[in-house]
Design a binder for these strands. Structure first.
Lengths: 114, 114
DNA sequence: CGGTATCCTGCTGGATACTG
DNA sequence: CAGTATCCAGCAGGATACCG
C-alpha cells in the first residue's frame, strides 16, 4: 500500500464542491451543450434538450447566467430573446474533456468487471 | 459571437454525467480525502470528516467501493477492518486538480463582480 | 468497533395550467 | 414566444437508537 497521499486543504475541497455545484443537476450540461451547438432561443433550446420542462429550463438558464456561463440578450422592441455562451464558459472545456474521458473509461471498466 | 461550437455526443454527455455522479453528493470528496490522507478505520474516518453521520459514511464507503475508488480489508479474526484508496482512484487526480483550480478562480471571479 | 434500522425533513425536479 | 405559478412525488440526507 503506497502512501503518496494527496492531501487537499479545506479550501480546495470547497473549490471542488463549487465546481461540481456549477455543473451538477440533471440538465446543466445538456443545456450548455444545446447553446454551444447553436441553439439560441428559449423554445429552440427547449426542443433540443429531450424531456426538459420549461420550468426546469428557465431555472437552469437563470443559474447559468448568474454563474456567467451564458448571457441573455433582448432586442429593442422586446420581441427577440437569445442566449449565448460566454468566453468564460470555454474555460470549462479542459475539465469537461477530462471528465468525459474518465467517464467513458470508467463505464468500460465497470462493465469489464461484471 | 464566434461559432467555434463544441458539440458533444449524447454518449459524451452521458459520460460526463457518470463522472459527476461518482463524485457528487455531500460527502464523497471529503471522505476520499480522509482516506487518501491516511485514515483507514471506520471511526477514524468518521472523526476526521466533520459532521458526517455513521449512516452516511457507511453509505458513501459502499458506493465508493462499488466504483472501485477504495477497497475494504478484514483480517483473519475479523477484528481489524481497514479502507484504502485504490490505484484507480488516482486516475482521478488530474480532473480533481483542474476542478480545484477552476473552482478557486470561479470564486474569485464571482467575488470580483459583486 | 463497525456498522443497521427507523423515522423524519427538506430540496430537487416533474406535471400541468396559466400569462403578458 | 418566453416564461411563471402551483401543487406534488421521490429521494438525499439528518437524528437517534440499537446491534453483534
Amino acid at each position: 500500500m503506497n502512501n503518496s497521499a494527496i492531501i487537499r486543504t479545506p479550501q480546495e475541497i470547497q473549490a471542488l464542491q463549487d465546481t461540481i455545484y456549477v455543473i451538477s443537476g440533471k440538465w446543466k450540461l445538456p443545456v450548455i451543450n444545446a447553446i454551444c451547438s447553436g441553439k439560441r432561443r428559449f423554445n429552440e433550446i427547449h426542443q433540443s434538450v429531450p424531456n426538459i420542462t420549461k420550468r426546469m429550463l428557465s431555472k437552469e438558464l437563470k443559474e447559468m447566467e448568474m454563474n456567467k456561463l451564458i448571457f441573455r440578450t433582448v432586442n429593442c422592441d422586446h420581441t427577440l430573446i437569445e442566449y449565448f455562451s460566454t468566453e468564460y464558459c470555454k474555460t470549462f472545456t479542459p475539465i469537461l474533456g477530462e471528465m468525459i474521458n474518465w467517464g467513458l473509461r470508467h463505464r468500460q471498466m465497470i462493465r469489464a468487471l461484471e
